[in-house]
């Protein structure tokens, strides 16, 4: 599934990374706990309700390039600058974590574990 399709499915808004929306995503991981994200051995789509600098920093450290931030939280300019510097795609959605995960799972995105 492409990030463009994911954005449409989640009624999402692309905050940064428009150029990478045709990249394919096959797995996802949902967490608000960044230490947990740092344990990942793969590079799934991250679904999170955490919307601060550490969300983007953690993605950088964990080599994750695709993030969906749920519940209509808006990343600030510093976050988006850092995300853009690291060629990340940041999508926001008004949907809850549960609904976001459900929709993606139903559409064939696999869990990491």
């Amino acid at each position: 599934m492409t990030l463009r399709e994911i954005t449409t499915l989640l009624h999402g808004h692309v905050c940064t990374g428009e150029a990478y929306l045709d990249e394919e995503v096959s797995t996802a991981f949902a967490s608000d706990l960044m230490s947990d994200v740092l344990t990942l051995n793969d590079t799934p789509l991250l679904i999170t309700g955490l919307c601060n600098m550490q969300t983007i920093r953690t993605c950088d450290m964990a080599c994750l390039s695709h993030v969906v931030i749920v519940r209509n939280k808006t990343p600030n300019e510093e976050m988006l600058e850092l995300a853009a510097d690291n060629d990340m795609v940041v999508i926001t959605t008004e949907f809850s974590m549960f609904r976001t995960c459900g929709l993606l799972f139903q559409s064939g995105i696999k869990p990491l574990y």
Partner: peptide, 16 residues
């Protein structure tokens, strides 16, 4: 914890 840390995984993550 609000920053997404503080769950007691820091030192174990370092060790791993």
């Amino acid at each position: 914890r609000d920053m997404g840390f503080g769950a007691g995984m820091g030192l174990p993550n370092m060790q791993k």
